[in-house]
């Protein structure tokens, strides 16, 4: 369970994150939705201490994140970047194995783990194990990025616009395989996006952000049925069709 209490972050007199509090339950998938500059990425990076908040507190499973060394904290949290952030000088195998190696797993444990993840993410190991990231397409690179984040089986997964840099067809395909991963059951996932459709697809609960604050939180349908402000109403205006489409296709 992740508990965030009253955190704020200022950059150059500008409130990137302004006194935000929320709780994410064990195994829950939440999506922070907002336009660029709404503070959602800053919020995400504060959870694994890539950015330190000016004030406030974050607890993971009851333990404050500042009570442990940042590198130890991060090895227990998967992180997926919009632009994959793969190491260009590492093979695909080495890229996926980064966190297990940092955790000191032995080779006999790492090798099968890497192969199993590659298979689940439809990256044929025989072909790609020893390839370098620049030999892969954008969609394949993002699959490696997801595999890397999941390699050490962390209980928490943070995803920063993970499908944002992909073209629509690739995005749909990567997203589909991602959603089907058995790995994700029981994982607490916090994903940030500006894509309303993605939020509807992946979220148990949506937090709509603007100007560093949470404007409204709730289940996807709450956003339509009970918009808290005019901003929320405007944000979802015209998205009703997409929402209905998902509701119908899911039920």
């Amino acid at each position: 369970m992740i508990v965030v209490k009253n955190i704020s972050k200022r950059f150059n007199m500008h409130n990137a994150v302004d006194n935000i509090s929320f709780t994410v339950g064990q195994g829950e998938n939440v999506v922070f939705l907002g336009t660029s500059g709404s503070g959602k990425t800053t919020l995400l990076k504060m959870i694994n201490r890539l950015i330190e908040p000016d004030c406030g507190e974050i607890l993971i499973d009851g333990r404050s994140i500042v009570d442990q060394r940042p590198e130890h904290l991060r090895r227990g949290i998967g992180y997926v970047f919009q632009n994959n952030g793969l190491f260009p000088h590492y093979t695909i195998e080495e890229n996926i194995a980064i966190v297990p190696r940092l955790l000191g797993w032995n080779r006999d444990r790492i090798a099968p783990r890497v192969i199993s993840l590659m298979e689940k993410l439809r990256l044929p190991p025989a072909q790609y194990l020893n390839a370098y990231p620049n030999e892969l397409s954008g969609g394949q690179q993002q699959r490696v990025g997801i595999a890397r984040a999941l390699a050490a089986d962390p209980p928490v997964l943070l995803m920063d616009e993970p499908f944002g840099a992909l073209d629509p067809i690739t995005r749909a395909s990567v997203k589909k395989d991602f959603k089907e991963l058995d790995e994700l059951r029981s994982k607490t996932i916090i994903l940030v996006t500006h894509d309303v459709q993605e939020a509807f697809e992946l979220a148990d609960r949506i937090f709509l952000m603007d100007g560093g604050r949470i404007i409204q939180e709730g289940k996807p349908e709450d956003m339509f049925d009970r918009p808290a402000t005019q901003y929320v109403k405007d944000f979802f205006e015209g998205q009703r069709y997409i929402f209905d489409h998902f509701k119908n296709s899911q039920h």
């Binding site: 890539l50 090895r75 970047f81 952030g85 190491f87």
Partner: peptide, 15 residues
Amino acid sequence: GVKEAALAMGMTATQ
């Protein structure tokens, strides 16, 4: 992006 990823994976500054 690569540098930030290295930190996010849990590498120390020296690593």
